[in-house]
Nucleic acid binder design. Structure first.
Lengths: 217, 217
DNA sequence: TTATGGTATGTGGTATACCAGATACCAATT
DNA sequence: AATTGGTATCTGGTATACCACATACCATAA
Protein backbone atom coordinates (compact mmCIF):
# COMPACT_ATOMS: atom_id res chain seq x y z
CA UNK A 1 0.00 0.00 0.00
CA UNK A 2 3.01 2.24 -0.33
CA UNK A 3 1.36 4.14 -3.18
CA UNK A 4 -0.67 5.96 -0.58
CA UNK A 5 1.81 8.74 -0.14
CA UNK A 6 3.13 8.53 3.37
CA UNK A 7 3.06 12.16 4.36
CA UNK A 8 5.12 12.36 7.50
CA UNK A 9 3.66 14.16 10.45
CA UNK A 10 5.07 17.65 10.85
CA UNK A 11 6.93 17.56 14.14
CA UNK A 12 6.39 20.54 16.39
CA UNK A 13 10.10 21.20 16.57
CA UNK A 14 10.35 21.46 12.78
CA UNK A 15 7.41 23.80 12.59
CA UNK A 16 8.87 26.00 15.32
CA UNK A 17 12.27 25.95 13.63
CA UNK A 18 10.88 27.17 10.34
CA UNK A 19 8.66 29.84 11.86
CA UNK A 20 11.33 31.33 14.09
CA UNK A 21 13.95 31.25 11.35
CA UNK A 22 11.55 32.98 8.97
CA UNK A 23 10.86 35.60 11.60
CA UNK A 24 14.57 36.27 12.04
CA UNK A 25 15.37 36.45 8.33
CA UNK A 26 12.49 38.82 7.71
CA UNK A 27 13.58 40.99 10.64
CA UNK A 28 10.30 40.50 12.44
CA UNK A 29 12.54 40.14 15.45
CA UNK A 30 15.41 42.59 15.67
CA UNK A 31 18.99 41.34 15.65
CA UNK A 32 20.18 41.30 19.25
CA UNK A 33 16.71 41.07 20.72
CA UNK A 34 15.80 38.47 23.28
CA UNK A 35 13.59 35.49 22.70
CA UNK A 36 11.60 34.23 25.66
CA UNK A 37 10.93 30.51 25.73
CA UNK A 38 7.61 30.78 27.51
CA UNK A 39 6.32 33.55 25.26
CA UNK A 40 7.45 31.74 22.14
CA UNK A 41 5.82 28.51 23.23
CA UNK A 42 2.56 30.37 23.77
CA UNK A 43 2.75 32.14 20.42
CA UNK A 44 3.49 28.91 18.60
CA UNK A 45 0.99 26.95 20.65
CA UNK A 46 3.47 24.29 21.71
CA UNK A 47 5.26 23.42 24.92
CA UNK A 48 8.82 24.36 25.75
CA UNK A 49 10.26 20.91 25.03
CA UNK A 50 9.90 20.81 21.23
CA UNK A 51 10.58 24.56 21.19
CA UNK A 52 13.91 23.98 22.88
CA UNK A 53 14.86 21.51 20.16
CA UNK A 54 14.09 24.11 17.51
CA UNK A 55 16.16 26.69 19.37
CA UNK A 56 19.02 24.21 19.71
CA UNK A 57 19.12 23.76 15.95
CA UNK A 58 18.90 27.49 15.35
CA UNK A 59 21.84 27.99 17.69
CA UNK A 60 23.98 25.34 15.98
CA UNK A 61 23.21 26.96 12.66
CA UNK A 62 24.27 30.38 13.88
CA UNK A 63 21.00 32.29 14.16
CA UNK A 64 20.73 32.71 17.90
CA UNK A 65 22.88 32.46 20.98
CA UNK A 66 21.71 30.93 24.21
CA UNK A 67 23.09 32.29 27.46
CA UNK A 68 22.21 29.88 30.27
CA UNK A 69 19.70 31.31 32.70
CA UNK A 70 19.93 34.74 31.10
CA UNK A 71 18.16 34.44 27.82
CA UNK A 72 18.23 33.52 24.19
CA UNK A 73 19.38 36.29 21.88
CA UNK A 74 19.09 36.74 18.15
CA UNK A 75 22.60 37.15 16.83
CA UNK A 76 23.63 40.66 15.91
CA UNK A 77 24.72 41.45 12.37
CA UNK A 78 28.22 42.81 12.04
CA UNK A 79 30.75 43.29 9.30
CA UNK A 80 32.89 40.38 10.49
CA UNK A 81 30.03 37.87 10.21
CA UNK A 82 29.00 39.16 6.80
CA UNK A 83 32.58 38.80 5.59
CA UNK A 84 32.91 35.32 7.05
CA UNK A 85 29.79 34.09 5.32
CA UNK A 86 30.81 35.87 2.14
CA UNK A 87 34.17 34.08 2.03
CA UNK A 88 32.59 30.72 2.72
CA UNK A 89 29.94 31.25 0.09
CA UNK A 90 32.45 32.08 -2.59
CA UNK A 91 34.62 29.05 -1.89
CA UNK A 92 31.73 26.64 -1.71
CA UNK A 93 29.71 27.92 -4.64
CA UNK A 94 32.84 27.53 -6.71
CA UNK A 95 32.98 23.94 -5.47
CA UNK A 96 29.38 23.49 -6.61
CA UNK A 97 30.35 24.51 -10.13
CA UNK A 98 33.42 22.28 -10.18
CA UNK A 99 31.37 19.29 -9.14
CA UNK A 100 28.42 20.16 -11.34
CA UNK A 101 29.99 20.71 -14.74
CA UNK A 102 31.28 17.14 -15.20
CA UNK A 103 27.77 15.91 -14.37
CA UNK A 104 25.91 18.14 -16.83
CA UNK A 105 23.80 16.77 -19.66
CA UNK A 106 21.49 18.71 -21.96
CA UNK A 107 18.41 17.71 -20.04
CA UNK A 108 19.86 19.11 -16.82
CA UNK A 109 20.76 22.39 -18.45
CA UNK A 110 17.21 22.72 -19.70
CA UNK A 111 15.97 22.23 -16.15
CA UNK A 112 18.31 24.94 -14.90
CA UNK A 113 17.06 27.38 -17.55
CA UNK A 114 13.50 26.55 -16.64
CA UNK A 115 14.09 27.31 -12.97
CA UNK A 116 15.71 30.59 -13.90
CA UNK A 117 12.82 31.46 -16.22
CA UNK A 118 10.32 31.03 -13.42
CA UNK A 119 12.50 33.46 -11.52
CA UNK A 120 12.28 36.16 -14.15
CA UNK A 121 8.51 35.96 -14.24
CA UNK A 122 8.18 37.28 -10.73
CA UNK A 123 11.00 39.76 -10.60
CA UNK A 124 8.54 42.53 -9.87
CA UNK A 125 8.10 41.26 -6.32
CA UNK A 126 11.36 41.69 -4.42
CA UNK A 127 10.42 39.53 -1.46
CA UNK A 128 9.42 36.57 -3.53
CA UNK A 129 12.26 37.20 -5.90
CA UNK A 130 14.90 36.74 -3.27
CA UNK A 131 13.60 33.31 -2.41
CA UNK A 132 13.80 32.35 -6.04
CA UNK A 133 17.30 33.76 -6.34
CA UNK A 134 18.27 31.49 -3.48
CA UNK A 135 16.34 28.69 -5.13
CA UNK A 136 18.49 29.07 -8.21
CA UNK A 137 21.68 28.71 -6.21
CA UNK A 138 20.23 25.87 -4.17
CA UNK A 139 19.13 24.09 -7.31
CA UNK A 140 22.68 24.16 -8.64
CA UNK A 141 23.94 22.94 -5.27
CA UNK A 142 21.45 20.10 -5.33
CA UNK A 143 22.62 19.08 -8.78
CA UNK A 144 26.20 18.88 -7.51
CA UNK A 145 25.15 15.65 -5.76
CA UNK A 146 26.82 16.55 -2.49
CA UNK A 147 24.22 16.64 0.26
CA UNK A 148 26.46 18.30 2.82
CA UNK A 149 27.45 20.97 0.35
CA UNK A 150 23.77 21.56 -0.39
CA UNK A 151 22.97 22.03 3.28
CA UNK A 152 25.92 24.37 3.71
CA UNK A 153 24.87 26.52 0.76
CA UNK A 154 21.35 26.59 2.15
CA UNK A 155 22.61 27.98 5.43
CA UNK A 156 24.89 30.52 3.77
CA UNK A 157 22.29 31.87 1.35
CA UNK A 158 19.79 32.10 4.18
CA UNK A 159 22.24 34.21 6.12
CA UNK A 160 22.90 36.38 3.09
CA UNK A 161 19.16 36.96 2.80
CA UNK A 162 19.05 37.92 6.44
CA UNK A 163 21.96 40.34 6.18
CA UNK A 164 20.56 41.95 3.06
CA UNK A 165 16.89 41.90 3.91
CA UNK A 166 16.69 45.66 4.21
CA UNK A 167 18.03 46.09 0.68
CA UNK A 168 15.69 43.43 -0.63
CA UNK A 169 12.64 45.01 0.91
CA UNK A 170 13.62 48.39 -0.47
CA UNK A 171 13.87 46.85 -3.91
CA UNK A 172 17.06 45.82 -5.56
CA UNK A 173 18.51 45.86 -9.03
CA UNK A 174 16.69 42.74 -10.08
CA UNK A 175 17.57 43.04 -13.74
CA UNK A 176 21.25 42.87 -12.93
CA UNK A 177 20.79 39.74 -10.87
CA UNK A 178 18.86 38.14 -13.68
CA UNK A 179 21.57 39.05 -16.14
CA UNK A 180 24.22 37.58 -13.87
CA UNK A 181 22.29 34.34 -13.71
CA UNK A 182 22.27 34.29 -17.48
CA UNK A 183 26.05 34.54 -17.51
CA UNK A 184 26.26 31.58 -15.14
CA UNK A 185 24.03 29.51 -17.36
CA UNK A 186 26.09 30.42 -20.39
CA UNK A 187 29.18 29.19 -18.61
CA UNK A 188 27.45 25.94 -17.74
CA UNK A 189 26.34 25.46 -21.32
CA UNK A 190 29.92 25.86 -22.46
CA UNK A 191 30.98 23.38 -19.74
CA UNK A 192 33.63 25.94 -18.92
CA UNK A 193 34.57 25.82 -15.23
CA UNK A 194 36.68 28.97 -15.35
CA UNK A 195 34.00 31.00 -17.12
CA UNK A 196 31.21 29.79 -14.87
CA UNK A 197 33.23 30.26 -11.72
CA UNK A 198 33.96 33.86 -12.66
CA UNK A 199 30.28 34.48 -13.30
CA UNK A 200 29.32 33.01 -9.93
CA UNK A 201 31.99 34.95 -8.07
CA UNK A 202 30.97 38.16 -9.77
CA UNK A 203 27.34 37.52 -8.86
CA UNK A 204 28.16 36.90 -5.20
CA UNK A 205 30.44 39.94 -5.12
CA UNK A 206 27.62 42.15 -6.31
CA UNK A 207 25.19 40.76 -3.75
CA UNK A 208 27.83 41.35 -1.10
CA UNK A 209 28.25 44.97 -2.17
CA UNK A 210 24.52 45.52 -1.98
CA UNK A 211 24.44 44.11 1.53
CA UNK A 212 27.30 46.33 2.68
CA UNK A 213 25.56 49.40 1.33
CA UNK A 214 22.34 48.58 3.13
CA UNK A 215 24.28 47.97 6.34
CA UNK A 216 25.80 51.45 6.26
CA UNK A 217 22.40 52.99 6.83
CA UNK B 1 35.59 40.55 41.53
CA UNK B 2 36.00 39.37 37.97
CA UNK B 3 39.50 38.11 38.71
CA UNK B 4 37.91 35.11 40.35
CA UNK B 5 37.78 33.04 37.21
CA UNK B 6 34.17 32.59 36.27
CA UNK B 7 34.16 28.94 35.32
CA UNK B 8 30.93 28.38 33.54
CA UNK B 9 28.81 25.44 34.63
CA UNK B 10 29.06 22.52 32.24
CA UNK B 11 25.56 22.10 30.93
CA UNK B 12 24.26 18.54 30.82
CA UNK B 13 23.48 18.84 27.13
CA UNK B 14 27.07 19.80 26.33
CA UNK B 15 28.46 16.95 28.38
CA UNK B 16 26.13 14.48 26.69
CA UNK B 17 26.99 15.88 23.27
CA UNK B 18 30.71 15.40 23.80
CA UNK B 19 30.41 11.92 25.29
CA UNK B 20 28.10 10.55 22.60
CA UNK B 21 30.13 12.11 19.80
CA UNK B 22 33.31 10.62 21.24
CA UNK B 23 31.64 7.24 21.44
CA UNK B 24 30.60 7.43 17.80
CA UNK B 25 34.00 8.58 16.50
CA UNK B 26 35.78 5.87 18.44
CA UNK B 27 33.33 3.28 17.13
CA UNK B 28 32.20 2.35 20.62
CA UNK B 29 28.77 2.34 19.01
CA UNK B 30 28.60 0.75 15.57
CA UNK B 31 27.54 2.81 12.57
CA UNK B 32 23.88 2.03 11.92
CA UNK B 33 23.15 0.93 15.46
CA UNK B 34 20.27 2.32 17.44
CA UNK B 35 20.53 4.69 20.36
CA UNK B 36 17.83 4.46 23.00
CA UNK B 37 17.00 7.71 24.74
CA UNK B 38 16.06 6.08 28.03
CA UNK B 39 19.15 3.88 28.13
CA UNK B 40 21.42 6.77 27.21
CA UNK B 41 19.91 9.02 29.85
CA UNK B 42 20.55 6.31 32.45
CA UNK B 43 24.13 5.74 31.31
CA UNK B 44 24.89 9.46 31.33
CA UNK B 45 22.98 10.01 34.54
CA UNK B 46 20.79 12.75 33.14
CA UNK B 47 17.16 13.06 32.12
CA UNK B 48 15.88 12.83 28.59
CA UNK B 49 15.37 16.59 28.18
CA UNK B 50 19.02 17.72 28.03
CA UNK B 51 19.86 14.47 26.28
CA UNK B 52 17.41 15.33 23.52
CA UNK B 53 19.16 18.65 23.01
CA UNK B 54 22.49 16.87 22.61
CA UNK B 55 20.94 14.45 20.12
CA UNK B 56 19.40 17.34 18.21
CA UNK B 57 22.82 18.92 17.77
CA UNK B 58 24.37 15.60 16.76
CA UNK B 59 21.67 15.18 14.14
CA UNK B 60 22.17 18.66 12.69
CA UNK B 61 25.89 17.98 12.52
CA UNK B 62 25.37 14.74 10.65
CA UNK B 63 26.26 12.08 13.20
CA UNK B 64 22.89 10.49 13.81
CA UNK B 65 19.46 10.34 12.25
CA UNK B 66 16.28 10.47 14.25
CA UNK B 67 13.25 8.61 12.94
CA UNK B 68 10.19 9.76 14.86
CA UNK B 69 8.74 7.05 17.10
CA UNK B 70 11.08 4.45 15.65
CA UNK B 71 14.47 5.27 17.01
CA UNK B 72 17.67 7.22 16.75
CA UNK B 73 20.30 5.66 14.55
CA UNK B 74 23.99 6.29 14.19
CA UNK B 75 24.63 7.19 10.56
CA UNK B 76 26.16 4.50 8.44
CA UNK B 77 29.46 5.12 6.69
CA UNK B 78 29.40 4.85 2.92
CA UNK B 79 31.58 5.89 0.04
CA UNK B 80 29.28 8.74 -0.95
CA UNK B 81 29.51 10.40 2.47
CA UNK B 82 33.27 10.00 2.61
CA UNK B 83 33.59 11.57 -0.82
CA UNK B 84 31.25 14.42 0.09
CA UNK B 85 33.23 15.30 3.20
CA UNK B 86 36.48 14.88 1.27
CA UNK B 87 35.43 17.39 -1.37
CA UNK B 88 34.26 19.88 1.23
CA UNK B 89 37.43 19.52 3.24
CA UNK B 90 39.65 20.20 0.27
CA UNK B 91 37.77 23.32 -0.79
CA UNK B 92 37.60 24.75 2.69
CA UNK B 93 41.11 23.95 3.85
CA UNK B 94 42.31 25.72 0.74
CA UNK B 95 40.22 28.68 1.84
CA UNK B 96 41.92 28.54 5.23
CA UNK B 97 45.30 28.89 3.56
CA UNK B 98 44.16 31.72 1.31
CA UNK B 99 42.85 33.65 4.29
CA UNK B 100 45.74 32.77 6.54
CA UNK B 101 48.77 33.70 4.44
CA UNK B 102 48.04 37.45 4.23
CA UNK B 103 47.69 37.45 8.03
CA UNK B 104 50.96 35.68 8.81
CA UNK B 105 53.72 37.26 10.86
CA UNK B 106 56.86 35.58 12.17
CA UNK B 107 55.42 35.13 15.63
CA UNK B 108 52.45 33.25 14.25
CA UNK B 109 54.64 30.94 12.20
CA UNK B 110 56.64 30.13 15.30
CA UNK B 111 53.42 29.19 17.08
CA UNK B 112 52.45 26.91 14.21
CA UNK B 113 55.81 25.16 14.32
CA UNK B 114 55.48 24.76 18.07
CA UNK B 115 52.08 23.10 17.75
CA UNK B 116 53.44 20.78 15.11
CA UNK B 117 56.47 19.94 17.25
CA UNK B 118 54.22 18.86 20.12
CA UNK B 119 52.59 16.61 17.59
CA UNK B 120 55.82 14.85 16.66
CA UNK B 121 56.64 14.14 20.28
CA UNK B 122 53.69 11.78 20.65
CA UNK B 123 53.65 10.17 17.26
CA UNK B 124 54.17 6.78 18.86
CA UNK B 125 50.57 6.75 20.09
CA UNK B 126 48.21 6.60 17.12
CA UNK B 127 45.07 7.47 19.05
CA UNK B 128 46.48 10.58 20.59
CA UNK B 129 48.29 11.39 17.40
CA UNK B 130 45.13 11.71 15.40
CA UNK B 131 43.74 14.29 17.76
CA UNK B 132 46.87 16.31 17.37
CA UNK B 133 46.79 15.96 13.60
CA UNK B 134 43.31 17.43 13.73
CA UNK B 135 44.56 20.02 16.19
CA UNK B 136 47.12 21.15 13.66
CA UNK B 137 44.47 21.67 11.00
CA UNK B 138 42.15 23.30 13.48
CA UNK B 139 44.88 25.62 14.65
CA UNK B 140 45.40 26.84 11.11
CA UNK B 141 41.65 27.27 10.71
CA UNK B 142 41.52 29.28 13.91
CA UNK B 143 44.27 31.55 12.66
CA UNK B 144 42.27 32.25 9.50
CA UNK B 145 40.03 34.43 11.68
CA UNK B 146 36.82 33.04 10.27
CA UNK B 147 34.79 31.46 13.06
CA UNK B 148 32.32 29.74 10.77
CA UNK B 149 35.11 28.26 8.72
CA UNK B 150 36.73 27.01 11.91
CA UNK B 151 33.55 25.28 13.01
CA UNK B 152 33.11 23.74 9.58
CA UNK B 153 36.67 22.40 9.53
CA UNK B 154 36.10 21.02 13.02
CA UNK B 155 33.09 19.07 11.84
CA UNK B 156 34.82 17.82 8.71
CA UNK B 157 38.00 16.65 10.45
CA UNK B 158 35.90 14.94 13.11
CA UNK B 159 34.07 13.04 10.41
CA UNK B 160 37.35 12.13 8.74
CA UNK B 161 38.55 10.75 12.07
CA UNK B 162 35.37 8.73 12.37
CA UNK B 163 35.64 7.33 8.85
CA UNK B 164 39.29 6.43 9.28
CA UNK B 165 39.22 5.32 12.86
CA UNK B 166 39.93 1.70 12.00
CA UNK B 167 43.09 2.68 10.15
CA UNK B 168 44.14 4.96 12.96
CA UNK B 169 43.71 2.29 15.61
CA UNK B 170 45.68 -0.16 13.48
CA UNK B 171 48.48 2.36 13.27
CA UNK B 172 49.12 4.60 10.35
CA UNK B 173 52.12 5.98 8.53
CA UNK B 174 52.71 8.71 11.05
CA UNK B 175 56.07 9.74 9.66
CA UNK B 176 54.48 10.56 6.33
CA UNK B 177 51.85 12.72 7.96
CA UNK B 178 54.49 14.56 9.90
CA UNK B 179 56.50 15.13 6.75
CA UNK B 180 53.43 16.46 4.98
CA UNK B 181 52.86 18.92 7.78
CA UNK B 182 56.42 20.09 7.34
CA UNK B 183 55.72 20.82 3.69
CA UNK B 184 52.69 22.87 4.67
CA UNK B 185 54.72 24.89 7.13
CA UNK B 186 57.40 25.49 4.51
CA UNK B 187 54.76 26.86 2.18
CA UNK B 188 53.47 29.15 4.91
CA UNK B 189 56.97 30.40 5.65
CA UNK B 190 57.38 31.26 1.98
CA UNK B 191 53.98 33.00 2.06
CA UNK B 192 53.29 31.04 -1.09
CA UNK B 193 49.58 30.28 -1.49
CA UNK B 194 50.05 27.94 -4.43
CA UNK B 195 52.79 25.94 -2.73
CA UNK B 196 50.93 25.68 0.58
CA UNK B 197 47.66 24.80 -1.08
CA UNK B 198 49.32 21.96 -2.96
CA UNK B 199 50.85 20.66 0.24
CA UNK B 200 47.47 20.76 2.02
CA UNK B 201 45.64 19.08 -0.85
CA UNK B 202 48.28 16.38 -1.06
CA UNK B 203 48.00 15.80 2.67
CA UNK B 204 44.22 15.46 2.56
CA UNK B 205 44.44 13.21 -0.50
CA UNK B 206 46.71 10.84 1.37
CA UNK B 207 44.43 10.73 4.39
CA UNK B 208 41.53 10.06 2.05
CA UNK B 209 43.38 7.15 0.44
CA UNK B 210 44.09 5.65 3.84
CA UNK B 211 40.44 5.88 4.76
CA UNK B 212 39.33 4.20 1.55
CA UNK B 213 41.75 1.33 2.11
CA UNK B 214 40.50 0.76 5.62
CA UNK B 215 36.91 0.84 4.39
CA UNK B 216 37.54 -1.97 1.92
CA UNK B 217 38.12 -4.42 4.77
C1' DT C 1 22.16 60.71 50.08
C1' DT C 2 24.35 56.62 49.37
C1' DA C 3 25.45 52.01 49.95
C1' DT C 4 23.79 47.60 51.27
C1' DG C 5 21.37 43.39 51.17
C1' DG C 6 17.32 40.85 51.13
C1' DT C 7 13.40 39.57 48.38
C1' DA C 8 10.45 39.02 44.48
C1' DT C 9 10.52 37.92 39.85
C1' DG C 10 12.16 36.26 35.54
C1' DT C 11 15.27 33.28 33.02
C1' DG C 12 16.69 28.85 31.08
C1' DG C 13 17.86 24.00 32.98
C1' DT C 14 16.20 19.66 34.49
C1' DA C 15 13.25 15.76 35.70
C1' DT C 16 9.22 13.31 34.94
C1' DA C 17 4.60 11.79 33.66
C1' DC C 18 1.92 10.82 29.94
C1' DC C 19 0.74 10.39 24.91
C1' DA C 20 0.53 8.26 20.32
C1' DG C 21 2.65 5.88 16.68
C1' DA C 22 5.30 1.65 15.46
C1' DT C 23 6.27 -3.04 16.15
C1' DA C 24 6.37 -7.77 17.58
C1' DC C 25 4.08 -11.44 19.23
C1' DC C 26 0.57 -14.69 19.72
C1' DA C 27 -3.87 -16.54 19.57
C1' DA C 28 -7.92 -17.19 16.81
C1' DT C 29 -9.66 -18.18 12.37
C1' DT C 30 -9.58 -19.95 7.80
C1' DA D 1 -0.09 -24.22 7.78
C1' DA D 2 -1.08 -19.60 6.57
C1' DT D 3 -3.40 -15.44 7.55
C1' DT D 4 -5.50 -12.28 10.27
C1' DG D 5 -6.08 -9.08 13.91
C1' DG D 6 -5.83 -7.74 18.49
C1' DT D 7 -2.87 -6.69 22.37
C1' DA D 8 1.28 -5.82 24.95
C1' DT D 9 5.29 -3.30 24.67
C1' DC D 10 8.78 -0.36 22.94
C1' DT D 11 9.83 4.00 20.71
C1' DG D 12 10.34 9.06 20.56
C1' DG D 13 7.08 13.28 21.12
C1' DT D 14 4.94 16.38 24.18
C1' DA D 15 3.41 18.88 28.30
C1' DT D 16 4.38 20.37 32.71
C1' DA D 17 6.15 20.96 37.36
C1' DC D 18 9.99 22.32 39.73
C1' DC D 19 14.85 23.96 40.33
C1' DA D 20 18.83 27.15 40.48
C1' DC D 21 20.83 31.03 38.90
C1' DA D 22 20.56 36.08 37.47
C1' DT D 23 18.62 40.36 38.05
C1' DA D 24 15.95 44.34 39.40
C1' DC D 25 13.83 46.55 42.88
C1' DC D 26 13.08 48.45 47.22
C1' DA D 27 13.52 48.87 52.07
C1' DT D 28 16.90 49.62 55.40
C1' DA D 29 20.91 51.38 57.59
C1' DA D 30 25.10 54.11 57.51
Amino acid sequence: MTFLKAEQPQLFKDHAYKEIKKGIIQHKVEPGSMLNERSLSEILGISRTPLKLALQQLEVEGWIQSVPRKGIFVKTINRQDVDDVFQLRKANEVLVIELLIPLLDNETIEKIEKVDKQLSDIKKEPLKFVYHDSSFHLFLAELSQNLRLYQLIQNLTDHFNWYGFAALKAGISLDEVYYEHKLIIEGLKARNIHQTTNAVLNHIDNTYSTILESLKE
